[in-house]
Design a protein around this nucleic acid. Structure first.
Lengths: 235, 235
DNA sequence: ACAAAAGTGTTCGTTCTACACCCATGC
DNA sequence: GCATGGGTGTAGAACGAACACTTTTGT
């Protein structure tokens, strides 16, 4: 199976930046590395690509191993290729970021990896170039969420508008005007109001909404500037 | 240097999607593959990553080999990892797209690779999954150019507004209103009007403009929706 | 004098932003 | 009855889209 002669073959790993949102804060799922080097240091969950796997399959496998979840939002972020990024042996890492509903996770946690959720604002130091990966993932997610309704992936089936707003505010580390926010969100037509209220957050209670899944997938690509009718072109 | 035991090492290549614009049409620089398999078929320019190289360095090297150009706009597109994408041996490809000033190229062409420019709309069949890479690169470029002034990378030092408009129209395969287009472009403040005119395209002649390089790098990230003042957040 | 492309302004509708009060409820 | 967070409306500014005529010059 080795046929291109004189070329160097190297290890290829996937690393997953796993985002969650607990209703108040953005969080990241990290593991405590179980083997040297950097044993016991915090790290992204990762794994080497196997002979018959694509990177996507490998990333989904790694995510499944840690969280027990399938069909998670997963997007290729970038490849990292510094020749010395892994001190043991040259390894190219392809980073993926995942958005999961943190509540679905909590019930299925695998203890094998000593995984823990950390506040995005208050993370431990990470091994290798994982810090850089997280920074890039954050940037990419901010970018993406400004244009596409991707953050719903972090929410449970039913959620309230104040929760949604807290989610956006967490990501952008700022506050938004709630009148303008809810108007904008509702004007997308993606949300379906429920009759039930969430009474956790306040005495009055906030109405639950559900995502209109059909409109969500149809309208996932949307919004722009610079070009007259940009939506047309950005399929 | 082999220390992670039991893992498979594989080849990693970079492939470059090289865009150019000749004043009228979008073009792609392809090479005729000089070795089996698929010898003589058209292909993207690529190469295997070398032991001490990052992917970025490898992509720049490959681009330099073909075009003689350095300091070219180059952006990582995505990794392609189908286990059988290269029939010879498993290879992961990291695709990069490059934007070059086609006029700078023409003087330095290397004949070694039998390279040729093809109209983007009228391309030959490509080997492996290169077609898919090109499609994705086109999509990404459309997306990016709708938000950021990246297309200037394709133009020579001096260019006219009608040329610029033709460039945008080529990418989006549509026509724009020239009054709105020039107003929008000029309102960015990125262009500096020259006294000289280009008389090629018309009797009246069109004024040349140059890019204000400082403002260009400062304002490269810009424009949005969904979030009140998105520019603030998308650094 | 005419053909061909360059250049420029206005109006209208939509969207964005800033801003303040009432409502429902549990204690 | 009051404290807490939920929910809603409006006015002014900025932006985006549609649209047509004049200018320059080479032949």
């Amino acid at each position: 199976m080795i046929k291109y002669i004189g070329q160097t073959r190297i290890l290829v790993a996937v690393d997953c930046i796993i985002f969650g949102f607990d209703g108040f804060d953005f969080k990241l799922l990290l593991i405590q590395r179980g083997f040297a080097p950097e044993k016991k240091k915090w790290s992204l969950m990762g794994g080497f690509i196997q002979p018959e796997e694509t990177l996507e399959v490998a990333a989904n496998r790694v995510l499944m191993q840690l969280t027990g979840l399938k069909d998670v939002y997963l997007e290729q972020l970038q490849s990292f290729s510094g020749p010395d990024r892994d001190p043991v042996e040259r390894t190219i890492a392809v980073a993926y970021f995942a958005l999961i509903d943190i509540h679905k996770y909590e019930k299925q946690i695998s203890h094998e990896y000593h995984a823990e959720w950390f506040l995005l604002k208050d993370m431990p130091q990470l091994i290798f170039d994982h810090q850089e990966m997280v920074e890039l993932a954050k940037k990419r997610l901010r970018y993406k969420a400004a244009l596409h309704p991707v953050l719903f992936e972090l929410l449970p089936d039913k959620f309230t508008i104040p929760q949604l707003q807290a989610l956006y505010e967490g990501l952008y580390e700022t506050e938004f005007d709630k009148r303008n926010f809810s108007r904008k969100i509702l004007s997308t037509g993606l949300l379906v109001k429920q009759n039930e209220k969430d009474k956790e957050g306040s005495r009055k209670g906030a109405f639950y909404y559900k995502l209109d899944k059909r409109k969500y997938s149809e309208n996932f690509q949307a919004f722009l500037k610079f070009i007259p009718n940009p939506d047309k072109f950005l399929v």
